[in-house]
Nucleic acid binder design. Sequence first.
DNA 1: TTAGATGCAAACGATTTGCGCGGAA
DNA 2: TTCCGCGCAAATCGTTTGCATCTAA
Lengths: 160, 160
Amino acid sequence: MARNHHHSANSCKICAEEPLDELLAACRAAGLRRTHLLLRVLEVLQRQTAPVSIRELSTTRSIRDDCDPATLYRLLQRLETKGLVRRIGLHERAAHYTLRRGHHHDYVVCRECGDVALLDMACPAQKLEREVSRSTGFKNVDHELQFYGVCPKCGKKARN
Amino acid sequence: MARNHHHSANSCKICAEEPLDELLAACRAAGLRRTHLLLRVLEVLQRQTAPVSIRELSTTRSIRDDCDPATLYRLLQRLETKGLVRRIGLHERAAHYTLRRGHHHDYVVCRECGDVALLDMACPAQKLEREVSRSTGFKNVDHELQFYGVCPKCGKKARN
DNA sequence: TTAGATGCAAACGATTTGCGCGGAA
DNA sequence: TTCCGCGCAAATCGTTTGCATCTAA
């Protein structure tokens, strides 16, 4: 089961690409310092619609040179704590991160190659959060929904 | 963020507890051998409604003695490949497993202590699988839906 | 008898942590 | 000048793998 990570994710028609300035403003407001690494990471996350792993970040050209893994982990933890990125589990070994964009997104993940595509549809779970909270007593409920399947590319390979 | 794993999961009113015999029959049909470890693992999974991690399995009284972690991992991989258990990511470091019961289940996970509760409600994502397949070209689509929140116990602690 | 399971030990990959230094505010 | 963030190195944890041995079928 090789994981290629083409990231064919189509972009969302609703979420406009947030300018870097605004992201930085949000970071400052959250008490983060305007670091070289922060800048680079935001740039990458901004142009990526699919969730990105730390390994992928750390091998990105612009980041590769000046990047210690530990620092990267710490930065993304900070960003997540401040609510600026969302951490997502995709059944890969490694966690993945996305910017928190205008509205909630769900994903389809290929079981064969790990490719992730963004879903551009009304999320059916969001309206249930309240119901879940009511029925279980859990507070502050949000959710994570992923679909898993075999992407067209891998489907084709299998048929040969 | 300590993870306690009380597993307060309430049981599902619909899924009857499957007799061990039937489980074993299914395993045999899948080509698995009736091993000591297999028996023990099935027993534990059967009485647990919440997903269980391999660590939890390996520290269960009945399993602890005769259990090498590598063997346990391999067994659960086999069981998953054969479609007998479901592997679930819960934002914990470790994967969790449940028996594939009568019908699909979703879960609420406590962000503080990691406690997992079973949700006994109609799953809103199941009917979307076809739609996702159609709109993305992914085949053989299923899904995983988890809600995250703060469980009553942890909510109380925070208020003190 | 034989393919499938196991135990042990070692490798691996993702993530975390401690500590002393450097840079943004 | 003061913390926050950084780099480096080592530790930890979950998981995988190779290999010789064992055992259910």
